[in-house]
Amino acid sequence: MALTDALAEYCRDHELVLGGLFIERDRGTCTRTAAFTGLLDALALPDAYAVVLPAASHLGPRPIATERKRQITGSTGARLLLMRGGMAARRRAKPSREHGPHLELVQDAET
Protein backbone atom coordinates (compact mmCIF):
# COMPACT_ATOMS: atom_id res chain seq x y z
CA MET A 1 0.00 0.00 0.00
CA ALA A 2 2.84 2.42 0.84
CA LEU A 3 4.49 1.81 -2.54
CA THR A 4 1.20 2.49 -4.33
CA ASP A 5 0.87 5.76 -2.42
CA ALA A 6 4.45 6.71 -3.30
CA LEU A 7 3.85 6.02 -7.01
CA ALA A 8 0.65 8.08 -6.97
CA GLU A 9 2.40 10.97 -5.22
CA TYR A 10 5.32 10.81 -7.66
CA CYS A 11 2.90 10.99 -10.58
CA ARG A 12 1.06 13.96 -9.07
CA ASP A 13 4.34 15.76 -8.41
CA HIS A 14 5.40 15.26 -12.04
CA GLU A 15 2.00 16.12 -13.51
CA LEU A 16 1.33 12.56 -14.64
CA VAL A 17 -1.89 10.58 -14.31
CA LEU A 18 -1.45 7.14 -12.77
CA GLY A 19 -3.38 4.94 -15.18
CA GLY A 20 -2.88 1.58 -13.52
CA LEU A 21 -0.68 -0.69 -11.47
CA PHE A 22 0.75 -3.94 -12.79
CA ILE A 23 2.06 -6.19 -10.03
CA GLU A 24 4.08 -9.37 -10.44
CA ARG A 25 3.61 -11.79 -7.59
CA ASP A 26 6.59 -14.01 -8.47
CA ARG A 27 10.08 -13.17 -9.70
CA GLY A 28 10.06 -16.06 -12.19
CA THR A 29 12.28 -16.47 -15.20
CA CYS A 30 9.72 -15.59 -17.88
CA THR A 31 9.76 -12.23 -19.63
CA ARG A 32 6.10 -12.35 -20.71
CA THR A 33 3.87 -12.69 -17.66
CA ALA A 34 0.21 -11.75 -17.33
CA ALA A 35 1.01 -8.48 -15.56
CA PHE A 36 3.71 -7.48 -18.05
CA THR A 37 1.48 -8.36 -21.01
CA GLY A 38 -1.26 -6.22 -19.43
CA LEU A 39 1.23 -3.36 -19.10
CA LEU A 40 2.18 -3.62 -22.78
CA ASP A 41 -1.52 -3.64 -23.71
CA ALA A 42 -2.09 -0.48 -21.64
CA LEU A 43 0.90 1.20 -23.30
CA ALA A 44 -0.71 0.59 -26.69
CA LEU A 45 -3.51 3.02 -25.77
CA PRO A 46 -3.23 6.41 -27.50
CA ASP A 47 -2.69 8.52 -24.36
CA ALA A 48 -0.10 6.24 -22.73
CA TYR A 49 3.15 8.06 -22.05
CA ALA A 50 5.41 6.21 -19.64
CA VAL A 51 6.01 3.45 -17.15
CA VAL A 52 6.94 4.66 -13.67
CA LEU A 53 8.92 2.28 -11.47
CA PRO A 54 10.23 2.67 -7.92
CA ALA A 55 13.62 1.39 -9.18
CA ALA A 56 14.96 -0.48 -12.21
CA SER A 57 15.12 -3.68 -10.16
CA HIS A 58 11.30 -3.81 -10.28
CA LEU A 59 11.56 -5.03 -13.87
CA GLY A 60 13.06 -8.30 -12.61
CA PRO A 61 16.47 -9.96 -12.72
CA ARG A 62 18.95 -8.38 -15.13
CA PRO A 63 18.32 -10.58 -18.22
CA ILE A 64 14.56 -10.20 -17.87
CA ALA A 65 14.81 -6.49 -17.06
CA THR A 66 16.91 -5.86 -20.16
CA GLU A 67 14.33 -7.52 -22.40
CA ARG A 68 11.46 -5.75 -20.68
CA LYS A 69 13.16 -2.36 -21.08
CA ARG A 70 13.58 -3.10 -24.79
CA GLN A 71 9.92 -4.04 -25.13
CA ILE A 72 8.66 -1.02 -23.21
CA THR A 73 10.78 1.62 -24.93
CA GLY A 74 11.26 -0.01 -28.33
CA SER A 75 7.96 -1.70 -29.07
CA THR A 76 5.65 0.87 -27.50
CA GLY A 77 7.74 4.05 -27.68
CA ALA A 78 6.90 4.74 -24.04
CA ARG A 79 9.38 6.26 -21.64
CA LEU A 80 10.62 4.36 -18.64
CA LEU A 81 10.81 6.61 -15.57
CA LEU A 82 12.38 5.69 -12.24
CA MET A 83 11.49 7.21 -8.88
CA ARG A 84 14.97 6.36 -7.61
CA GLY A 85 18.03 6.06 -9.79
CA GLY A 86 21.29 4.21 -9.50
CA MET A 87 24.76 5.69 -9.27
CA ALA A 88 24.56 6.98 -12.86
CA ALA A 89 21.50 9.06 -12.01
CA ARG A 90 23.08 10.49 -8.86
CA ARG A 91 26.16 11.55 -10.84
CA ARG A 92 23.97 13.30 -13.43
CA ALA A 93 21.54 14.87 -10.98
CA LYS A 94 21.93 18.56 -10.21
CA PRO A 95 22.53 19.40 -6.56
CA SER A 96 19.29 20.18 -4.80
CA ARG A 97 18.19 21.12 -1.33
CA GLU A 98 15.21 18.78 -1.69
CA HIS A 99 15.70 15.19 -0.63
CA GLY A 100 13.07 13.31 -2.58
CA PRO A 101 12.76 10.95 -5.50
CA HIS A 102 14.00 12.26 -8.81
CA LEU A 103 13.31 11.45 -12.42
CA GLU A 104 15.67 9.30 -14.42
CA LEU A 105 15.15 8.21 -18.00
CA VAL A 106 16.32 4.62 -18.13
CA GLN A 107 17.35 4.78 -21.76
CA ASP A 108 19.95 7.37 -20.68
CA ALA A 109 21.19 5.34 -17.69
CA GLU A 110 24.19 3.08 -17.59
CA THR A 111 23.11 -0.54 -17.37
Rank of each mutant, 00 (worst) to 15 (best):
E24A: 04
R91F: 06
L7H: 13
L43P: 01
G60W: 03
R62M: 09
E24W: 07
R97L: 15
M1G: 14
T37I: 12
L7R: 02
L82T: 14
A42R: 15
E67T: 02
G85R: 04
M1E: 08
T66L: 12
D47M: 08
R62K: 08
T111Q: 10
S75F: 04
V106W: 05
M87I: 12
S96N: 03
G74Q: 14
T37Y: 01
R68H: 08
M87C: 03
H99R: 13
V51Y: 01
V52C: 04
Q107G: 04
A93H: 06
P101L: 03
L43Q: 00
D41W: 04
R27I: 11
C11H: 00
P95G: 07
T4E: 10
G77I: 11
E110S: 12
T76G: 00
P46E: 13
A55G: 09
L53R: 02
R97E: 10
P61K: 14
G74W: 10
L43M: 01
F22E: 12
R90V: 08
D108V: 14
G100D: 10
R92M: 08
A48G: 08
T33V: 04
H14M: 02
R90A: 04
R84S: 15
A50W: 06
L59N: 09
A8Y: 00
V52Y: 05
T37P: 01
I23E: 09
A44E: 13
L40F: 04
H58F: 09
R12F: 05
H99C: 08
I72M: 00
V52E: 07
L43R: 00
E110D: 11
L18Y: 03
S57L: 04
D108Q: 10
A8K: 07
A93V: 05
G38E: 07
L105E: 10
